[in-house]
Design a protein around this nucleic acid. Structure first.
Lengths: 204, 204
DNA sequence: TTTATTTCCGACCAAGTGGTCGGTCGACCC
DNA sequence: GGGTCGACCGACCACTTGGTCGGAAATAAA
């Protein structure tokens, strides 16, 4: 068991550092040597634990990326009260975190989707799955919001969910090129207006 | 002048093919040899016309990308009637074009912004400028819409513009991973609702 | 036809790339 | 102590990268 522990510990260290660099510089722009140098490890160590660079990245997605996504974007939106409020708060918190992180490099998921699109269908599948978990969660939350009277019944939950994820991805992309404070404020403000509409029983 | 013409013609051919491949595979993932092979030209020809790969890319942005952006995203939204309607139609047309293009690789501008962020500030500047032209145009259009009575006076033009560009960037990013038809429909539908709100004289 | 100049060729280079492989070293078992 | 085995080392390989350079066609000027 000790051996297994050591093995796991090393693999985990590699994955953490790997994700950091992949997120920072992109997958194709980060060499295995870069990661190994940051870790003080050698080629031998890497290929002892992982089959290939791709295998390594997939293991990172399955372990770290999924986990991060759940804890930052999925779990915080769940709750018994007004789902629109929960979504708004979760989005605002995420944007605030990004804003105050000078090392922010955009929305991890959409960055990778953009990079792998048309190049690696296998990895794309994993990323797509994460996105869909996000959307499904939003939809069911909005549906529940309808039963609970927080969301107007005429609202198209799927449409709103797509619209929400799209706008969030977009604003995160824009925030990387500076001016993030204003962008966050404007975005939340507009989202608030939009949600006010979704909550209304009747449209004019 | 003939020489200049030939020179320009070759350079233009290189730029067109270059943009095609850069858009398809990304800048760092497209080698000069790839482009040259597609053109049937040699290394010598390339470095005779351009100083470096970066110089080449910048020339592409300044010539082709800016031009494309103007003709597809800026000029179509201008008009005397309802600006909200113009924006909606322009966005819908762009999304429809992307949807019916099986070779679509996402929104060019945001793809490049994502790729160059934190890696090449010089190129980032050029991309950022294009984005800002977009936003400025949207803002002034919305302002005019206010004077003309199409847009409610309480609306924050800057905020709406940011929100619009963000949502468009996001939906284009999502459309690359399939299901583009549904996404476009949902997006336009939600945008319509949102615009209805912006046009209203008073909020409930 | 010679001469000059623009345009293009392709061999070459140093610096990387992902991946392989024989070997070392220490912890544990007998 | 000897042997086994998991964990790691680092030289090495074939290949690709952006970029250089001497020279050769093509074209225009004389």
């Amino acid at each position: 068991m000790d051996k297994t522990l050591k093995r796991m510990a090393t693999m985990h260290r590699m994955q953490v550092t790997g994700l950091e660099l992949f997120y920072q510089n992109g997958y194709y722009n980060t060499s295995i040597d870069d990661i190994l140098k940051a870790l003080g490890l050698s080629k031998g160590a890497f290929y002892y634990h992982f089959d290939s660079k791709e295998d390594f990245f997939i293991s990172i997605v399955q372990n770290l990326v999924v986990q991060k996504f759940y804890s930052h974007m999925i779990e915080p939106i769940e709750g018994q009260e007004d789902p629109l409020n929960n979504i708004l708060n979760t989005f605002e918190n995420s944007l605030a975190t990004a804003e105050h992180n000078s090392l922010d490099h955009g929305f991890m998921l959409s960055n990778f989707i953009t990079e792998f699109n048309g190049k690696n269908p296998v990895i794309m599948k994993y990323l797509k799955d994460i996105y869909q978990i996000w959307e499904v969660n939003l939809v069911s939350l909005l549906q529940k919001g309808k039963s609970d009277g927080y969301v107007a019944r005429h609202v198209d939950s799927e449409g709103v969910a797509s619209y929400l994820t799209a706008s969030y991805i977009g604003i995160r992309t824009l925030m990387v090129e500076g001016n993030s404070r204003t962008l966050r404020y404007q975005y939340i403000q507009q989202l608030r207006q939009y949600f006010k509409m979704l909550a209304q029983k009747e449209m004019a």
